[in-house]
């Protein structure tokens, strides 16, 4: 269980997160949605223990702040891509916490290979990570998070650079992790996709939580439309699936 109470984060005079309180049960998938600048990424990095904060973030009974022992995997939206490292080496970094830096244990090696296979990255393993496409890099980042065998996985826009086929394949892999008892938190600009996989959605705007509930109740709420300034509409298809699309503005509205 992750318990967040009155979490506030400021950068200078700017309050980025404002008194956020949440409870996230173990083994669930929570999607954080909201317009740009809502504080979604800051919430994720705060859970990582990176940002100085006021309030409390507790994993069980332990305060999160700078607890390096906890095994949390992080998939950034804009990673720092290192020079001189192959895809396989980059993915293997995910084993550092379990196997030690620069060490390759048999079990870790097998796990890396299995994950490269599951993420459809076999064939790319010896390529320099600086030379692969944005979509391939995103799958590599998720592979690194998976081999970490974390308790919690934080993902910042994990599918933004993926084509439709790879979006589903990747999210299915993450769903398997959830079934193994891993807690998943993701920010997603594609609300439809977020609602399809996450059982719970947190809607944020301007550093505050506007709504927190099960996926269906949030996507059909008025708060969702108002968070996006009524620029979206929600449609229910014949098969019962819900899709959220941006409204096309008329020229005179721009």
């Amino acid at each position: 269980m992750i318990k967040v109470e009155n979490l506030s984060v400021s950068y200078g005079d700017k309050t980025v997160l404002d008194s956020i309180s949440l409870e996230i049960p173990t083994g669930t998938w929570t999607s954080i949605i909201g317009p740009n600048g809502a504080g979604k990424t800051t919430l994720l990095t705060s859970l990582l223990g990176m940002n100085p904060y006021s309030g409390s973030i507790k994993f069980g009974e332990i305060e999160a702040f700078r607890d390096l022992k906890r095994n949390i995997a992080y998939v950034p939206q804009r990673p720092q891509v290192p020079l001189g490292m192959t895809v396989r080496e980059y993915v293997t970094l995910g084993r550092a916490k379990r196997d030690g830096w620069g060490r390759e244990r048999r079990e870790g090696k097998a796990r890396v290979y299995a994950t490269l296979e599951a993420m459809q990255l076999i064939g790319l393993q010896d390529q320099q990570v600086t030379r692969i496409s944005g979509g391939e890099l995103q799958r590599v980042l998720i592979a690194r998070a998976i081999v970490q065998e974390p308790q919690i996985i934080l993902m910042d826009e994990p599918t933004s650079a993926l084509d439709l086929h790879h979006q589903i394949a990747t999210l299915n892999q993450i769903e398997l992790l959830k079934k193994e008892g891993i807690t998943v938190l993701s920010t997603m600009h594609d609300i439809t996709l977020g609602a399809m996989y996450a059982e719970r959605i947190i809607l944020m705007r301007e550093g505050r939580v506007l709504l927190d509930g099960n996926a269906s109740s949030v996507i059909h709420s008025e708060e969702l439309k108002s968070a996006f300034d009524h620029g979206i509409s929600v449609h229910t298809l014949e098969d019962g699936h819900t899709v959220i699309v941006a409204n096309k503005m008329r020229i005179e509205e721009i």
Binding site: L48, G49, L68, P76, Q80, P82, L93, A96, Q148
Partner: peptide, 10 residues
């Protein structure tokens, strides 16, 4: 890596 990624790797 970025500081966030390094931090998540302990």
């Amino acid at each position: 890596l970025s500081d966030e990624e390094a931090f998540s790797l302990g």
